[in-house]
């Protein structure tokens, strides 16, 4: 079943891709092939392979339960927040929170995760910023 859905999604993607390709504004100065040919070929093969997946699906993979799925989405949300807050809060604070969250969700006890998070953040800061001289995001406090 998973593969049938996957194939259908792939087919939609191929159609969308072909449509988006046809929207490309062609310049009056174009080479013999033009900017549309290659993406159109891609869309066709993408569609054909999606069709093959749809018609001849593999056995279903083992999908995680709803709780695990929520876990993955929550982690993704935390990462997105991390990406957004990194320039605002600065590297040390943002990273400590994100690392603490991830290690907590992977099964560390809450208090210990906080310690691990802070240690990870400081460790990376020391190695990459102080030793290697990389530029990391600096927040309002300069770190």
């Amino acid at each position: 079943m998973s593969d049938r859905i996957f194939g259908a999604v792939g087919l939609c993607l191929a159609l969308f891709y072909a449509w988006a390709t046809l929207q490309i504004q062609e310049s009056f100065l174009s080479d013999a092939v033009g900017p549309k040919t290659f993406p159109l070929v891609i869309a066709v093969i993408l569609g054909l392979s999606s069709l093959a997946i749809l018609l001849k699906p593999d056995p279903d993979p083992v999908w995680p339960g709803l709780a695990r799925l929520a876990e993955i989405l929550a982690a993704a949300v935390v990462m997105i927040l991390y990406a957004e807050f990194l320039p605002i809060a600065g590297f040390l604070i943002a990273t400590a929170f994100a690392a603490a969250y991830l290690t907590w969700r992977l099964g560390t006890r809450p208090l210990q995760s906080l310690v691990v998070g802070v240690a990870t953040s400081i460790g990376i800061y020391v190695i990459f910023k102080l030793v290697l001289g990389l530029s990391l995001a600096s927040g309002p406090f300069g770190f």
Binding site: T95, A98, L102, G117, F128
Partner: peptide
């Protein structure tokens, strides 16, 4: 549980370091 967050954070540091 300790290693994987480090992997994630190092990935972020690396990509952010290139483009900011």
């Amino acid at each position: 549980r300790i290693l994987m967050p480090i992997v994630a954070m190092v990935s972020f540091v690396g990509i952010y370091g290139i483009s900011g």
